[in-house]
Every structure is written in C-alpha cells, then in structure tokens.
Design a protein around this nucleic acid. Sequence first.
DNA 1: AAGTTCACG
DNA 2: ACGTACGTGAACTTT
Length: 939
Amino acid sequence: MSKKLFLLDAMALIYRAYYALIRSPRITSKGINTNAQFGFTNTLFDLINKEKPTHLAVCFDTHAPTERHIDFTDYKANRQEAPEDLLASIPDIQRIIRGFNIPCVELDGYEADDVIGTLAWQAADAGYEVYMVTPDKDYGQLLIHPSVFIYKPPYMGSKEEVLDAKKVCEKWDIARVEQVVDILGLMGDAVDNIPGIPGVGEKTAAKLLKEYDTLENVLANADSIKGALGEKVRNGKDSAIISKKLATIITNVPVQFHEEDYQLKAWNNEALIEVFTELEFKTLGKRILGDAFNVFQTAAAGVQTDLFGNAVETKTAAKADGEEGLLATGFSADKNINNTPHEYHLLDTPEKVQAFLNDAVQQSEICFDTETTGLDANEADLVGMSFSFTPGVAFYIPCPPERDKTLAVLEQLRPLLEKPDITWIGQNLKYDMLVLKWYAFELKGNIYDTMLAHYVVEPEGRRSMDLLSAQYLGYEPVHIEELIGKKGKTQGNMRDVAVDKIKDYAAEDADITLQLKHALHPQLKEKEVEKVFYEVENPLVKVLTAMEFEGVKVDVGFLREYSKQLEIEAKQFEENVYQEAGVRFNLSSPRQLGEVLFDKLKLDPKAKKTKTGQYATGEDVLLKLAGNSSIVSDILGYRELTKLRSTYVDALPEMINSKTGRVHTSYAQAVAVTGRLSSNNPNLQNIPIRTERGKEIRKAFVPRDAEHTLISADYSQIELRVIAAISGDENMCEAFKQGKDIHTATAAKVYGIADEEVTKEQRYKAKSVNFGIIYGQGAFGLADNLGISRAEAKEIIDNYKKEFSGITRYMDGMINFAKEHGYVQTLMGRKRWLRDINSSNFTVRGFAERNAINSPIQGTAADMVKMAMIRIQAAMEKEKLRSRMILQVHDELVFDAHNDELEILKPLILENMKAALPLPNEVPVEAELGTGINWLEAH
DNA sequence: AAGTTCACG
DNA sequence: ACGTACGTGAACTTT
C-alpha cells in the first residue's frame, strides 16, 4: 500500500467551518460558539475515515510577522480581525488534534502554506502521495511535483474534490501549473490585499499568459500591448513583480519531514472525551468514540432514555463533577431514532385507515404532516398524510392522484380532522393547513407548531427539519433529495416516488416532529417565552392560512398598459445617459456604470467603497456627485423605472394563481428576528408608495368585484408610541396623550420654541431624529441623512437627549439589560439574544447595542399587529362576515370588504387594533382607516 | 452564490 | 483608524 500523507491548512479550514455554520451557530449551554471546533473536527474525522491516510499533520500560522509582511506592509492589511469566537476556538482545536495524536506544525516567520509546501515536496520526493487539504486556490503552484495534490474537503453540499495539475490548469485556463504564480501576480488577490495589476482580473491575466507565457515576459512586452490594457500593464509593472513574489509559496523553510512523527497512531480517548464533553459534541462525540463516549455521557448527565427515546429521570444517578452544563439546556440530547425501534405503517386500505382512526380519535395530541407535489401550497396536490402520537410509531396514508379519490380519503378522516379537542402538532402547519383548505378541509382543534416553538426559543437560527432534528434529537433524517432529487431541473415529483419510500420518509417526519415537540416544549418555559408562543405566534397560524388562501385581485390589464409606458420612458432615460456619457454600455451593470462615471468621465468625489473594490453607484453616492449633472437624474430615472417594471409591473401578473386568478403571497412567520412577518412569492410588503410613478402600481390592487371595497387600516406612529410608552419619557408620553403631531412636538422641544413656531425644516429634522433614535443612530448618520454638518447634528441630538431624558435612559437601560441578561425583550416577552453585546470589538458590539435599542420597539409593534390580526379574524368569524383580511404590511392591514359590511367592519377593525395590546404609561394607540376601489385610494 | 441596488415599514 | 440606522425580499450582474 502506498503511503499517503495529508497536510491540513488549519486556519483556512477553521475559517470555513466557522462561516459555514454562521447562520445557525452551534452554541453550548454556557453560550460558547463552537462552529469552528465542530466543523474542523467533523472534517478531520471524515477525512481519516474516508481517505485512510497513513500519515497526517495539521499546519498553523503563527502570530510572528513573515517576510511578506516585512517586504510589503500592505500584505493582508485589509483583512478583518477574526471574530472572537473563532480565535477562541483555536486552543480547543489544538487539543482535539493532540487528542487524535496528530502533530501540529507551525514555524515563526512562515505561513502555513510555506510549511505545507516544503513538507509536501520533501515527502513527495520520499515516495509519498501528498494531499494538501485546503480550499485555497494558491496552492495550485505546488502541483509542479506530480505526486502532490490538492484535496478540497466537502462543503455545503458539494462533494470533496481532488485537484491534480491538469485540473488546476483547466480552472485557471493556463497551460502549466508554473503559471499559477504568474496569474496571481497579474490579477492580485483582494483577500490578502495583494494588488496585482489594477484592472486586470482572472480572464485578462489568462489571456496575457496565453500570449506571453510568463509574467516577466508580459512585462517585457508591455509596450506592444495595445489600448487601455497596455496602459494598465505598463503602470502596474512594479506592483506585478511584488505581487508575484508575495503569491509565491516558499518551499525551503527550515522544517524536516520525519515520517515517524506524522504516522497515524492510536488516539488518546480520554483527552478526546474531555474536550468533546466540554464542547457538548453529543452526536459527533458518539460517532467518533462510539460507546466509550456513550457510557460516559449517560452517567454524566443523570438522564437515561427509555425505549422510545424519551428522557427519563434516574433518581440514583449522580452528576459527574463539573459536567453540569451538559444537559443544562433542557433537551434530551442523546436520543437517536436510529437506535429506537420504530414502526412505520402504511395505511393503504379503508380498513387499515379505520383501525387507525379508532385509536387516533382517543388521542389528545397528534402530530400531522402532509406530502404534496410541490412547494407552493396554493398549487400543490396532496400525495399523502402522516400521523404520529407515540414516539417511534407513525402512520402514512397515501392519496391517489385523482382529486375525487383524495377527497374520499379525506372524507373518511373527517371525524378526526374536525375533532375540536385535539392538539395538532406539526412543523410549519400553515403549509399543511393551506393544502387541506384547497380540499375544503380544516383542522378544527388546537395547533402546536414546532417551527414557531423554535422561533420563539431561538429567533435567530434557521429551522429546517433536518437542522432541528440534528440539534435537538441528535438524529439525521432521510433527506428529501433522496426521494425526489436535488432542487432545480432534475428535481422530480413526490407523486413518482414508490409508496413504500414515501411512507418511510413521511412517517419519519411525523415521528421526528412529535419528538421535536417534546424536546422543544420545556424550552418554552425555561426561556420564558410561553406567552408570546401561546398568545401570539401559535394562534396567528390560522389567521395567516386564511389570508394566504384568500389572496388579492390584481388588475392585469392595467399593469400591461403601465409596463409599455414605463418601457418607453426608461428607454428615453437610457438613451440620454449614453448621449451624456459618450458611450453605450450596460446601464444595469453597476460595475460598468462605475467605470464610465469615474474612470471615463472622471466625475468628482471618487467614492470607491464597495468591499470588492468597485465603485459604489448607489443613489446616495450619485446624488453627491459634483454639479448634480443631468446624467445623474437620467441614471436614477432609468433605475427607478426598470426597478418598477421588473420587480412589480411585469412580475406580478406572472404570480397569478391559475385556480383563483388572484395573487397569493406567503407570509414567513419564523424568519424576521424581531418578530415581524415577512412576505414572499411575491413580496407584497414592499409595493411602491413613495414616488409618483411607484404608487401608480397600487392602483392595480383591487377588490374582488363591484360589491366589494378595499379597506386599509394602519397604526399611527406605532413605533414612536411604543418607545414613549416603554421608556416612560414624560415629554413624549405627554405629546401623545394630547394628540399632538409628534414630529412638531419634538421639534418644539429640541429648538426650545412653541409648537406654532416650528418651521417645516425643523419638523423635517425632528422627524429624522425620531426615526434615527429608534434605530440607535449617531451624529454621523444624522448628518449624512440630513445633509447637515456633524456639529449641527450633534447639537440636535444633544438637545434631544436632554429634552427626552427618558428616551436616553431607555437606551442605556436596554444596553445594560442586555449586557447583564444576554437578551432584550418585547412587551409580550418575545426575546432576542445578543451574544455580541459584551464583545471587545467596537463594530460588533455597536451592532448589538443598536439591536438592543431597536428590537424591543420593532418587536413590540409586531406583537401588537399580530394580536390585532388574531382579534379581528375572530371577530369577523363571529359576525359571520363575508369580508376578508387579505394583507399585512407591518403596521397596516388590508381588507377585501363587502359593501354591505363596511359600517360594521370599520369600527370592528379600528377598535380591535387599538385594544390589541394596551401600552404602559397610558400612551394611547391610534389607528386610521381608509376605503377605495384600489389600494392607493384606500391608503 | 455573492454582491449591489432598491422597494417597503 | 474605523465605521457609523433597524428589519425584510427580489432583480440583476458577475463569479
């Protein structure tokens, strides 16, 4: 057997692991982020398992400066400081590596790639096959040696990949791997702040090398390169030479490859158990160490699991010293459905279904899940349903493709589905209920949505079934891809999958969801979020289901006409821009626009500010351009019109449902961290209103027929009322109690004048401060926003803080509360955890501090609207109205109202909105309402 | 898949 | 010296 050496680029892998999991970080019960430790360990273990190396080493960078830093002070200068979590992970990772009895190699004055390069070539000369484990493309240059390869570990769904010299050449479009350093020298590397030749990218570099073979030869022939490119090359000669040197990996650093040191040996299990326990690697620990870890865990935790995986208290078990934290979060961690005997039943005859029903109607809680032909609940057909009420046992009932047969199946289930005293448990039940609603069935009992339970327990993470199962049950369920393939062109249809396979998949989903409920449920109490769960989120599900089912009518004819008009006007703006610029280019490309504006036309403040080094061309930048030339207004005109056309006018008709002729948005109830809803497919929460041309689009949203009218009702200044109320600021509370215009009242206080003396200008500035305050804005931001000096902005803010000292107290109070408790909360007890609040990094901490100020405000307003929706829906049902609530836009509710019901409905809506969530300090809640034959008119 | 811009509250 | 106002979703370009 040949000898295989793997050399790991530790920091690159650690970074990747950390950021791969950043959206759903792994946090221990002590609040430590273990993304990097987890990801790295996973990669290392999988590698050992799969690739069976005979020899292995992990290489680190050291803090000592390298020759590159000394030669070129900008080297890696723009690199952001690593997050604290990530830096803190390194000692743990080194302990883990030592636990595996693998050497860590590092050398002051050299980077990991130099060490790896040197060792790789030495080992290869000694007859090894060498794999350098790294995602870094620069390593390509080392493949000059034929037995050296790059091994890219699997990442985000893509498989691992072994790169040889041929593949590297293909990637860069070059002839020989020796040219890797030439290409890097020419194009530079933004990540390491290696400049290269400005304006030369990957493509251009490859082109140059095709013609001239080496970087030196390119430079030698710079005079014969024509046009702008030649100019760039001639100007960038010095930079190119330095860049090539920086990009060249040193292969003769003072290390020696002693093969016996790098040979894989037996692990130090004790050391590994200690680290894994500390890091709470439950499943991973067991996967790596097997029973050695299991025995320890169970004893340490003082909890065992019964046959079905339920946590059972063991009275006699004593906690091992120092292992308090292991189950402190309250989930039963060691459940593994794999080890639990499970029975998944296929109920494919009416007799079997009946037997199931007899049992099921006795239950108080049943987990329910549907399988359908698609992701859009308004278009999908039912393929089957699964149920579970005993952990490990689940039932799957298939539905035939013919609609009448599916209806017959549902009919048999009617006594169960409509039983009023059942609690239906499910993951994202809105989807399942919406599917049922298209068959005119509904779940009449209570519901318990595990997705929402997780949302209130942990609003920030993601919560797919797969993730939740892994996190709370330590179990990886069957992936849907195994049934219907990956998303995209190859994705198949659930209808075409063999019924036995669907049964296993679907039944498992119901089984897992039931167990998930048991794991999550104690967390509601522990985290003190029961109120927001039971009084806000859970009851809202049925309301949203009804709204999504209803949809809204869109006047397609109007939009088609408007589209033509916008197209003509946009074209005119576009032509104007090309005239003014003197070139034709793609005006939709910010990159090309930036080059035209700043390189060709040399317009004044050269704001080069995007992180990729391109010119920023956003509206704020363009408006600051010298002279406000007409090209700017033409660009902005073009942008406005094309935006309106592509995002709304042309897109909305495409979203019309084939069955209803209406547009059905989908509300995401567990996405926005503050507690707001979000809307997608299409997003109906960002329909234009601020510009004349934009608000026209609202005319396309119309009542269902001539007997109906749209009603729009919105809260007045809800966020400011909330901050007044929860801060208890006297002046602001008083202004609201007296029914004053809040921005005028604010201006009067800030400028020390009477309300009547406030000018438009002053009111405008005060309004900006009021909004800025909600978000934690500083003097810089206010100055930028209002186009005033920082001194003036500071003065306004100082005055504001003095006059509204209660607001200042609130802001400081929230930050201190967060620092002490690690979270902030809304009136309904909705929490947001802010683990960066004590960070030593100014920027990171500042972000958390602004969240601490803003989240309770935005979140309390969200609580209030949601509660209003629940009340209004209930009242409308009680009155048996034909009118329907159809849209929510954060502080606004829209209704498709029957004309006969308008006079009942108006007070019903307003009263329920005002009374939904009374604010402290007697701050009144006001709402306003309008009606019309379209949304614009109603607003 | 990431970055940029822009629509809303 | 740095960055600077919160929360979203979608379209388009570029990698």
